Computed example of a mutant assay.
Amino acid sequence: MEQYREQLPLLEQLSKEVYNQLRQVLQEQAVELSGIECRVKTESSLAGKLERKGDKYASLEDITDLVGLRIITFYTDDVDKVAAIVQQLYEVDWSNSVDKRKLHELTSFGYNSLHYICRLKGGKIPFEIQMRTALQHVWSAIEHDIGYKGAVKLPPEYRRQFSRLAGMLELADDEFSRLRTTMTDYRRQVQALVKSGKLDEVLLSTDSFRSYLELRPFQRLNQRIAAVNQAEIFPASLLPFLSVLESFGLDTLGDVQRFIDENSEDAYQLSLSQLAVTDLDILSESIGLQNLCLAYVLKNGGGVAGLKAVYDLLYGKQGGNETLAELTLEQASHLPFVKK
């Protein structure tokens, strides 16, 4: 205990150093985490450990978890990725490290962490790094909260209930990782279909619309509109328009392309009526898509209510949207495509 008190400042410094290094490197490697925890074992906790297992330790250096860190990932396969990064950063004491995921015990789900005993390269003080998923972490916390441990003797019906729940969570952990892989493959397929021009085969979604925007489908219309006042185009996100396009019943990227082709000239004419009497020389990149949507509503007799619905989706429901819709209708009232 005297050794511990003397080394406590070094232990706290080591804890902060390793924590900061791991957080930075994992962020650089784009590993999404639920969290990183670190702690230095308290004096009372160490005293309790020595009372229970003191005969195992000859000196303070034999206690490998005075400094402990826990890295919590969202996915099971990211645990292995974190482990590979830890192996590169630190010296791992393989004789004292353990992969509890290989225990395969029915009640062990909450303890299926990967435990590495490490040292800084050239360092002497050991520290423990636990790696587990968020579901494993939650399960372990629940077990601790309700006082259940796998070694505790409980009636068979209670142990069976815990085993069933642990099995469900373990299955969910695996399925989340599998689903992420499936979604990654799907996004790659969508990107390939978009680049090849097979737009009718791609359902309209956030991912597919984002890939479609990389083709800059509204650039030509924007350039025509900007030429009215020799304006500069200011970058803006077009993703908020996805909900508007979906409200029009567009299901595929092919539908979006036809929507553009069929309404571009009307959107340009609407822009002319709005800009010709102004000296605006800076326009948002969303001008073309916004006027495509507004022209579509006007062509289909949506009137003020339809225009307001578009503005509500784009800007949220607010009092000024109806006034804006009335102004838009007034500006477009003389255009031949407007359905009365």
Rank of each mutant, 00 (worst) to 15 (best):
V25Y: 02
E246Y: 00
T181S: 12
G306H: 01
S140F: 07
W94M: 13
K121Y: 02
R5G: 04
Y296P: 00
S247Q: 05
D93R: 05
K49L: 08
G68C: 12
G288F: 13
D80V: 02
D251A: 06
A47R: 12
D55K: 14
L250C: 00
I287A: 07
Q290Y: 03
W94F: 12
K49T: 07
I225E: 02
K121E: 00
L26K: 00
S15C: 08
K153R: 06
L324V: 02
Y111H: 05
G319W: 03
D78P: 05
S196Q: 14
D279Q: 12
T76F: 04
A58Y: 07
Q223Y: 09
D173W: 06
F218H: 01
D62I: 10
L292K: 14
D99V: 04
M131Q: 10
K16Q: 11
R101Y: 00
I260Y: 03
G319D: 12
K102V: 00
V86Y: 10
Q257K: 12
H144K: 13
D55S: 15
Y186T: 10
I142K: 00
G320E: 08
L307W: 08
L294Y: 10
S97T: 03
Q87R: 15
L171K: 15
R164N: 12
D251L: 03
N20E: 04
T252E: 00
G147V: 13
Q24N: 10
G167E: 10
R5E: 12
I71V: 15
V228W: 13
I117F: 02
M131I: 14
T64K: 15
L215Q: 13
V202F: 05
L66V: 10
F74L: 15
Q7A: 09
Q29G: 03
V304I: 13
I117D: 04
V92K: 09
E17R: 15
L283H: 04
